[in-house]
Deep mutational scan, measured.
Amino acid sequence: SYYEILDVPRSASADDIKKAYRRKALQWHPDKNPDNKEFAEKKFKEVAEAYEVLSDKHKREIYDR
């Protein structure tokens, strides 16, 4: 789930989600993982997609249904 990707509970606040996104984006940024760039790019995209949905109140409500 998007919550698992960002490592936050379903009850996470918008601020918690933003902090988790920043932490995970740094962790999986391809430039930070030169030895495993392809895998890092995949993870980085997953993190971005999760944040896009969970950071938008309307999209998150739909996702949580």
Rank of each mutant, 00 (worst) to 15 (best):
Y51D: 01
A50K: 00
N36G: 06
S13P: 05
Y63S: 02
K37A: 11
Y2W: 11
A14K: 08
S55R: 11
A50W: 01
K19Q: 14
D56I: 04
D64I: 02
S11Q: 11
A50C: 01
D31W: 05
D64M: 02
L54A: 00
L26K: 11
S1F: 09
D7L: 03
V53I: 13
A50V: 03
F44G: 05
K57E: 15
V47G: 02
K19F: 08
V53E: 03
K18V: 13
P30F: 04
A48M: 15
K37C: 06
L6A: 00
K19V: 12
R10I: 12
K32H: 15
K24P: 00
R65S: 13
S55T: 06
R23A: 14
A40K: 03
A25H: 10
E52V: 06
K43M: 15
A14W: 07
Y3I: 00
K43L: 07
K59A: 11
E46G: 04
R22N: 15
D56W: 02
Y21S: 02
K32M: 15
E38D: 10
P30M: 05
L6E: 00
V53T: 12
A40N: 05
H58S: 13
I5P: 00
D64C: 03
P30E: 06
D31E: 12
A50G: 02
S55A: 09
N33W: 15
D16A: 09
K32Y: 14
H58R: 14
V47A: 10
D15N: 10
P9Q: 09
Q27F: 12
E41L: 14
D16H: 06
S55I: 10
A12M: 01
L54V: 02
A25W: 15
D31S: 13
D56T: 05
H29S: 14
L54R: 00
K37P: 12
I5L: 09
F44H: 06
F39N: 07
L54E: 00
A25V: 14
Y21N: 02
E46K: 07
R23N: 13
A50E: 00
Y2K: 03
V47N: 02
D56V: 05
I62T: 08
V8C: 08
N36C: 15
S11E: 13
P9E: 08
H29V: 05
L26M: 14
A40G: 04
S1D: 15
E49A: 09
K18T: 14
P9F: 05
K37T: 11
N36S: 08
H58G: 12
D7H: 07
V8I: 14
S55M: 07
H58D: 13
Q27L: 13
I17H: 00
D7Q: 10
F44K: 04
Q27C: 07
P34N: 08
I62H: 12
R23P: 02
A12Y: 01
S13L: 05
E38I: 12
L6P: 00
Y51C: 04
E38G: 08
D35R: 08
A25E: 09
E38R: 08
R60W: 02
E46S: 06
S1M: 08
F44R: 07
E41Q: 13
A48Y: 12
Q27W: 07
K37L: 13
S1N: 14
E38M: 10
N36P: 03
V53R: 03
K45F: 09
K57N: 12
L54H: 00
K59P: 02
K24N: 04
V53L: 04
E61D: 12
H29T: 11
R65N: 14
K43C: 09
Y51H: 04
F39W: 14
P9W: 06
E46Q: 12
A40V: 05
A48G: 09
E46H: 06
H58Y: 14
K37D: 05
K37I: 12
F39M: 11
K57Y: 09
R10V: 11
E41T: 12
L6V: 01
E4T: 10
R60D: 02
E41S: 13
A25S: 14
E49R: 08
E41N: 09
Y3R: 01
H58E: 13
H58A: 15
S55E: 04
E46A: 10
H29Q: 10
R60M: 03
V53Y: 05
A12I: 02
E52T: 08
A40H: 05
Q27S: 06
F44Q: 06
K24R: 07
S1E: 07
E41W: 12
K37M: 11
D64P: 02
P30G: 05
H58F: 10
D64W: 01
K57P: 15
R23H: 09
L54P: 00
K18C: 12
R65I: 11
P30H: 05
E52G: 11
N36H: 09
D64T: 02
F44S: 10
Y63L: 04
E61H: 08
S13H: 06
R65V: 08
S13C: 06
Y51M: 04
E49V: 11
H58K: 13
A20C: 04
A40P: 02
Y21F: 13
S13F: 04
S11T: 15
R60N: 02
E52R: 11
A14G: 10
P30D: 05
E49Q: 09
H29E: 09
D16W: 06
S55V: 08
Y3L: 01
E61W: 09
A14I: 14
Y51A: 03
K19Y: 08
Y3C: 01
K42T: 10
K19L: 13
R23K: 15
D56M: 03
I5Y: 05
K59M: 10
K42V: 11
V53A: 04
S11D: 15
W28F: 09
E38P: 09
V47L: 14
K18M: 14
V8F: 00
Y21L: 04
R65K: 14
V8P: 00
S1Y: 11
S1P: 05
L6K: 00
L26H: 09
A12C: 08
E41P: 02
S11Y: 13
K18W: 13
Y21R: 03
A40M: 06
R22W: 15
V53C: 10
K45I: 08
F44M: 15
L26I: 12
R23E: 15
A12H: 01
K18D: 15
Q27M: 09
D64F: 02
K59C: 09
D31R: 08
D15G: 10
K19D: 15
D35C: 12
E38Y: 07
D31L: 11
E46C: 09
Q27P: 03
E4S: 10
E41I: 13
D35I: 09
E38F: 08
L26W: 12
D56E: 04
P34I: 11
E4W: 09
D16P: 01
K45M: 12
W28C: 04
K18Y: 15
I17E: 00
E4I: 09
K57D: 12
K24V: 06
W28P: 01
D35Q: 12
A20T: 02
K24G: 05
A14D: 14
Y51L: 03
E41H: 10
D16C: 11
K45L: 12
F44W: 14
A12Q: 00
L26T: 09
I17S: 00
